[in-house]
Design a binder for these strands. Structure first.
Lengths: 251, 251
DNA sequence: CGCGACGTTGACCTACCTCAATTGGCGTGG
DNA sequence: CCACGCCAATTGAGGTAGGTCAACGTCGCG
């Protein structure tokens, strides 16, 4: 089950309609490389990626850059609009993207009208935090080949779920340079690493597509454990998250 | 302003009383090294550290370990009780700790009775996520000496705030081995790094205390920017987080 | 056809790791 | 009070994963 399906399942039909309408009404396009949010700004909108990928990143004063997270289509970037005074990271378009940017007023009204929406947004933030933890151990403890393999597994699983057997294909919009920024490696070393993955796992990375013939093999190499993605927990979200986010009205 | 003060400020006196009473009633002690939560378990309690430090960590199958986060006194470990089906990381006591473990029933009732509590807990989770992001760039992009320096700055700032001038002392309960697991380095290399920090910034690390004579100097070396800790945003939390977590009743 | 973006390769280098032994402080039991 | 043992910090010698620099190849697109 993909993230998108999970989100949709938690809203009532009426809520889903409101939500989709709001997304459509506020959709904007940006060319690749555009900064949507810059570190230190006051959050001004609730952003949801509709198509294309978006990256969260941070930079050190001397320019070293770390990609912190990837936001895939259907996912909200963050809840900063409702939480912090100033954003602590930047967000930019990996490639041409469509993003819904819902202003404060509309977003607040939307949440008012859709009691389950806060829950869904909160859930997405919870999962994002879990992914962030996995990235921490990825960069901190795994070797180069494990890191790249693990990221490939994650990106595949987030789009297609974990395949029961065999493998498949999925979008992969990162250049090797971006792959390097995400894994804390060099572009040159990522290149050699990808080549080794080609040799050892027959992984193919071409034309913005990733092909994994044997997912289990790649997952073993990466010590990939999909538990942190919390896939398939959708049905239980409502009863757990309920107390925290106030009343639930499933009609 | 420390995290603890922020939390207290957001609750009404009555709420604070309920909260404190619940913490006191559920306090437990654990010797150092005890696992409070193991990866894969179903969350059973809302945990708040009362004294001592607690670490969140993850392990790879072969034993490599990454410390993901530190929970200092006054802070809740996580909201997993209200969010996920199974926890994706482990939690253990760094040293002898006192932790309040509030069961599901009581925790739910408590949130019911204290409308602002959900907001406070949510806020702590938001800040924890921001810290996690900073750790990601720390491990991914900073050199060994920068990493250790930045972690020292963070730990100092989380306890004492950012000093306007000069420096000071604070608790520092990590061994060099744990410092290594938190920064993705080796214990041996951390040792040499700490020695270099002693030489270059006169930082002293002894008897579980950290002494930083010149905070600004250390912060410069580490490229430490305290913005990600979101200190001093307390007064604004209520109006922002409100819409997300339902009604606010400040009486 | 030329340009820009991305991938690839080679040679060399170094920050950090590994292994292994030693030191120092401190609490405990005799 | 001393001796022992444990835990953490320290030191040394040698190794390697991954970084750096610089060039070249390739593909798609205007």
């Amino acid at each position: 089950m993909t993230f998108n399906q999970i989100l949709n399942r938690l809203l009532t039909p009426r809520e889903r309609m409101n939500w989709e309408a709001s997304l459509a009404r506020n959709a904007r396009e940006y060319p690749k490389g555009t900064d949507l949010v810059r570190e230190g700004e006051r959050p001004a909108a609730l952003r949801v990626v509709l198509s294309g990928w978006v990256q969260k990143y941070k930079q050190l004063p001397d320019g070293r850059r770390q990609i912190l997270a990837l936001v895939l289509p259907g996912q909200p970037c963050d809840l900063d609009l409702f939480t912090v005074v100033r954003t602590d990271h930047s967000i930019s378009a990996i490639r041409r993207v469509t993003v819904a940017e819902i202003g404060r007023q509309e977003a607040t009204a939307l949440i008012e009208q859709c009691p389950n929406l806060a829950m869904v947004l909160g859930w997405s933030e919870i999962v994002a935090a879990a992914v962030q933890r996995e990235w921490t151990i990825n960069i901190g403890q795994r070797s180069a080949i494990e890191r790249v393999a693990q990221l490939m597994c994650e990106i595949f699983a987030r789009q297609r779920g974990v395949p029961a057997a065999g493998g498949g294909e999925c979008d992969f919009l990162l250049t090797q340079w971006q792959l390097a920024e995400a894994t804390g490696l060099t572009q040159v070393h990522v290149n050699r690493t990808v080549q080794e993955l080609r040799r050892r796992c027959a992984v193919e990375l071409r034309n913005l597509r990733l092909h994994i013939p044997d997912f289990a093999q790649l997952a073993r190499l990466a010590a990939f454990n999909p538990a942190y993605l919390h896939l398939g927990e959708a049905d239980l979200v409502a009863e757990r998250v309920g107390p925290l986010f106030g009343r639930i009205d499933r009609s």
